[in-house]
């Protein structure tokens, strides 16, 4: 028996919008720790890891570990039917091939339940090693989204380069080139607008912009994004979900052959 009640149901709506374009079908894992997912995109270039900790739910009952295969497209369709202020409850019975999403309006005058078919998904689970990153950039998520969108109109790849001068995003396309430099800015009065760069070593890596633009769909989840870089390692783009967990995207770099 599984029953997870989330008063701020809009978080789940935003999570689905943040991952559904990258991954079509995925197994959601439910344990005492929380509600989580790890999945790769179909070309195995990017990986998304989601964690919603059990403490973040108003009610969390998960009698035994469960892995539930879901079409993210269909789950997003169902969650779109929930109001932004609705309380969302996820329910599943042991051995059932369906999951139920219950939506309650804040005044309790409207209650809806949507039952969705589960599916069998063969998925590979990868071990993500703990790594010390050479550079960690924290910046406003909206700024990062804007940069990826703008550069995507000019080129296909972005070169991210962190030096003591700041973080530089560069692209090159048929029409020309573009460079955007963001300097450290530790605005004390507005921490959500700060750009903080922690650098052990200068690092330069190249990535496909298409994936970065897909990750930026998580922007409504967090005001800040953290980009962790090390040479010859996948970049980690993390959006923290207040008091609940995170959505982390890992993207394999383009490597010179």
């Amino acid at each position: 028996m599984l029953e997870l009640r989330l008063v701020q149901g809009s978080i789940l709506k935003k999570v689905l919008e943040a991952i559904k374009d990258l991954v079509n079908d995925a197994n959601f894992d439910c344990s005492a720790t929380g509600f989580s997912l790890q999945a790769m995109d179909s070309s195995h270039v990017a990986l998304v890891a989601l964690l919603l900790r059990s403490e973040g739910f108003e009610h969390y009952r998960c009698d035994r570990n469960l892995s539930m295969g879901m079409s993210l497209t269909n789950m997003a369709k169902m969650l779109k039917c929930a109001g932004n202020d609705d309380i969302v409850t996820i329910k599943a019975d042991d051995g059932s091939d369906t999951i139920t999403f219950m939506f309650e309006s804040p005044t309790q005058d409207k209650i809806a339940d949507f039952e969705m078919k589960l599916m069998d998904i063969d998925s590979e689970h990868l071990g993500i090693p703990e790594a010390e990153y050479e550079a960690i950039v924290r910046m406003p998520s909206s700024e990062f989204a804007r940069i990826c969108k703008d550069l995507g109109t000019i080129g296909d790849t972005v070169v991210i380069s962190v030096t003591k001068e700041g973080v530089k995003f560069s692209t090159r396309g048929d029409i020309g080139t573009a460079n955007i430099v963001c300097r450290q800015n530790t605005s004390i009065d507005k921490p959500e607008e700060a750009t903080i760069i922690e650098m052990q070593e200068p690092v330069t890596l190249t990535f496909a912009l298409r994936y970065m633009n897909s990750f930026a769909k998580a922007t409504p989840l967090a005001t800040q994004v953290t980009i962790s870089l090390s040479s010859e390692l996948p970049v980690v783009v993390e959006y923290k979900i207040a008091e609940m967990g995170y959505v982390r995207y890992y993207l394999a770099p383009k490597i010179e052959e």
């Binding site: 990986l47 590979e124 990868l126 071990g127 993207l251 394999a252 010179e256």
Partner: peptide, 14 residues
């Protein structure tokens, strides 16, 4: 020339 690498070449299956 830059070649796209895959996540599976950095992280191993568990």
């Amino acid at each position: 020339v830059n070649q796209q690498s895959q996540i599976t070449s950095f992280f191993s299956k568990t």
